[in-house]
């Protein structure tokens, strides 16, 4: 955690103490992440193959190598509160190429799980939950798509829960089993009022 000295905000940020303190490290965080991800981020040697393989990195501040380092050192706060955690597209290119045979994608997913447990989830992810709950689709059909489908000679709605809305109930009961919808509703309400 950066320690502050009482300057104006911009200067405060520049002059903050950025040293790594031992009390930021939580070895149990490393163990938990490894258990959930079933991978070995503590073996990372920081070669950067993951970041260089990442389609997100050249367009964003997401650096998967940094998250591997945080997993290795047990920097729980830094890892879980960094909004970059949610920029992974889960394409698995890093997992394909990692020379240490780590599955960085799965490590990211584990961290997202842990962050979600602490209600640290971007609202758009929660809205996706709501969309799946009500339609069975993360990206529901819309008028533009319906028109395009008709033009191609397809039925306006695909043969999914859109075509068979009675099955949405089944999806809802799965989501309810984990209390995901209620949780999403609560957090969205807290953030957006």
């Amino acid at each position: 955690m950066a320690r502050t000295k009482g300057y104006p905000e911009a200067l405060e940020k520049k002059l903050a103490d950025t040293r790594l303190y031992e009390d930021e490290r939580h070895p149990e965080f490393t163990r938990t992440v490894e258990k959930i991800s079933m991978s070995i981020p503590h073996m990372c040697y920081q070669c950067g193959t993951c970041t260089a393989s990442c389609p997100s990195a050249p367009r964003s501040s997401y650096r998967i190598r940094k998250f591997m380092r945080r997993a290795l050192l047990g920097l729980e706060e830094e890892a879980l509160t960094d909004p970059d955690l949610w920029l992974c597209t889960t394409c698995y290119s890093c997992t394909d190429r990692c020379p240490r045979d780590i599955a960085p994608t799965d490590v990211i997913m584990a961290m997202r799980n842990l962050a979600a447990q602490r209600d640290i989830v971007p609202v758009n992810f929660l809205k996706t939950v709501q969309a799946i709950y009500s339609t069975g689709h993360g990206v529901p059909n819309n008028d533009v798509n319906r028109a395009a489908r008709k033009k191609l000679g397809l039925p306006a709605d695909p043969p999914t829960t859109h075509g068979f809305p009675k099955y949405v109930k089944g999806i809802q009961s799965i989501i309810d089993h984990f209390g995901l919808k209620a949780r999403a509703d609560r957090i969205v309400k807290e953030r957006e009022g």
Partner: peptide, 21 residues
Amino acid sequence: RVANVLEDPNTKNLLINAEDT
């Protein structure tokens, strides 16, 4: 470490993807 190398089929030059860590 270099993640991958791609070739420009016209110039046969090579495109390197890596991270300056």
